[in-house]
Simulated assay, not measured.
Amino acid sequence: MLTIPKLRHSNSPLFFLMAGPCAIEGRDMALRIAEHIAGLTDKLGIPYIFKGSYRKANRTKIDSFTGIGDEKALKILKEISDTFGAPTVTDIHESHEAALAAEYVDVLQIPAFLCRQTELIAAAAKTGKAVNVKKGQFLSGNSMKFAVEKVRDTHPESQVLLTERGNSFGYGDLVVDYRNLPEMQAFGVPVIMDCTHSLQQPNQTSGVTGGKPRLIETIAKAAIAVGADGLFIETHHNPGEAKSDGANMLPLDQLEDLLKKLVRVREAIL
């Protein structure tokens, strides 16, 4: 069972980090990113979970990049875990994916748009893996108690995590209500702030999701100040060339400076 997030609550000296590329685009890029982040987090003493989607299902256009092949990408995630000793997380979109993904990763993630899908959540919980449920853009923090109950009722030993990723604001923007973090922590689970997807600008007429990556630091600092247990940050060596969600990813070379600032923020509020 995953233990790192369970040991980290809002009064902890540090937070944990879920970070990596939006999608696994290939072995070399994934290992390169994982090595860089593992080195940074080890130096700063931040517990680290590598994030990478083995397949992307929620795409605007039918010809958008979806992945390099399920088992190929999942094997890369397993190699990263074995090489760097970091737990891994990936998202699943249909119930039948849970058992396959659970063979390779430590945390199964339920996408925000699917956070009400009972069979999907139950399938993830049945694997015994930790389950990270992203709060829907259409829900309050308090509403997520039902997602927590679905996991616990299905498999009481499964660890539950919840992730805040903003709420829809009009047709093409999101806004973060930081009241959701303590409201979800009241369920006795670690709560993560998704610092990159909360800055998306979805439903663009171009068919490609936009974003405001310059505000990642603002979102992250506020989340740590409020007491988030963990942060979720998608990052890439060159977001402009990323095959998925490049518009809201953090350039990898900016991560170290950001993490150092966040450690100081956490220390200041304790």
Rank of each mutant, 00 (worst) to 15 (best):
I216Q: 12
I192L: 02
N58M: 03
T218G: 00
F187T: 05
I110G: 08
C195E: 05
A73K: 12
T60K: 06
A38M: 00
H93W: 04
L139S: 10
S206K: 08
H96I: 14
K126C: 08
F146S: 15
P202C: 05
G210P: 06
A101V: 01
I269F: 07
G39M: 00
Q201H: 12
A23I: 05
R264Q: 15
E149W: 06
Q117S: 13
A247S: 15
L258Q: 08
G170P: 02
K134I: 00
K6I: 06
D106G: 11
R165G: 02
N203M: 10
T235K: 11
L231D: 07
T205R: 09
P239V: 01
G230T: 04
L252V: 00
S206H: 07
S168D: 01
L259R: 10
E119Y: 11
V105S: 06
M193R: 11
A247H: 14
S143E: 15
N142D: 12
G230E: 10
L270K: 15
A268N: 05
V191T: 02
I233W: 02
H96Q: 15
R27A: 09
E71C: 04
A147K: 12
D106T: 08
D253W: 08
Q137C: 03
E79R: 08
G207V: 00
N167G: 04
K43F: 05
P87R: 10
F187Q: 13
T83S: 14
F187A: 12
E183Y: 10
L44A: 08
Q137R: 12
L14G: 14
F65Y: 14
A101K: 05
S64I: 02
P47C: 07
L270C: 13
A98M: 10
P13K: 13
G45Y: 04
L44S: 09
K261R: 14
P182N: 07
Y54E: 08
D229A: 14
K134F: 00
V265A: 07
L259A: 07
G26K: 02
E217I: 03
V226W: 09
I92L: 03
P156F: 02
M184V: 00
V151S: 03
V175Q: 03
T60N: 01
L258V: 01
S206D: 14
F187K: 14
R165N: 04
V226C: 13
S140M: 12
N203W: 11
K51C: 06
D257G: 15
